[in-house]
């Protein structure tokens, strides 16, 4: 079975890796082929790591990298975890694909002391122009799918997520906005392709 793919260092990984303390416990919801957890194991000496992933092929890749993973979806099965059983719960470009993102986010904040969520920004300028001028569903670097084959079932912007955090009384501890491989400093809701938020429950 060929699934020993090399580890790929995505641009947002650096921000995530740098913001996870050494020796932490990390749960990665929708961990894909396990690259991020493998990097965290190597670079941050995390003491407990666990992925959850729906794709069977990705499971084999995780196992080949020494990443522990549960084969399953995120809409069920999170309630088995005790409160604060992880230091960080990562939802990197996954919660826009689950049926009930609100519940998954609340669960992430219950299970983890902090949650790190990354999502494609639907209000990126390219997307806006495609929709407003061309009248077409947007296709961007972070939203690369056509309307008929996209796994994304919820679309949100960076501003939407800020509103959500306010509404749910969630503390935003840190943000990171990314366009292609570069961080975005000004007007992130317009220029960034990806938003990454480190959030926690208000105490």
């Amino acid at each position: 079975m060929k699934s020993n793919t090399p580890i790929v260092y995505n641009p947002e990984y650096k921000f995530i890796v740098n913001n996870i303390e050494k020796g932490s416990r990390v749960l990665d919801l929708g961990c894909g082929n396990g690259d991020l957890l493998a990097i965290l194991k190597k670079e941050r000496n995390i003491i407990q790591s666990q992925g959850i992933e729906i794709n069977e092929k990705a499971i084999y890749e995780c196992v080949a990298k020494g990443v522990s993973v549960f084969h399953g979806d995120l809409d069920t099965g999170l309630d088995d975890y005790a409160d604060n059983s992880f230091d960080y719960v990562i939802l990197n470009q996954t919660f826009q694909q689950v049926k009930k993102p609100d519940i998954v986010l609340q669960e992430a904040l219950r299970i983890g002391r902090k949650a790190i969520v990354g999502f494609p920004n639907f209000a990126n300028i390219t997307a806006r122009l495609q929709l407003a001028i061309r009248g077409r569903a947007p296709i961007t670097k972070s939203l690369p799918y056509e309307w008929f084959n996209t796994p994304n079932i919820h679309f949100l912007s960076i501003a939407d997520f800020w509103d959500y955090c306010k509404k749910r009384d969630i503390t935003v501890e840190k943000t990171f906005y990314l366009a292609k491989a570069k961080p975005v400093k000004y007007l992130p809701n317009l220029f960034s392709l990806l938003g990454i938020f480190i959030i926690s429950n208000k105490t």
Binding site: Q50, E56, I59, S68, V69, D80, Y81, A82
Partner: peptide, 21 residues
């Protein structure tokens, strides 16, 4: 089989679960 996984989760054990097609 997932009941077993559930017990492992609740016990905080390092666990991998795969459902093979």
């Amino acid at each position: 089989t997932q009941d077993i996984v559930r017990v492992c989760k609740q016990s905080g054990l390092d666990t991998t679960y795969c459902e093979i097609e």
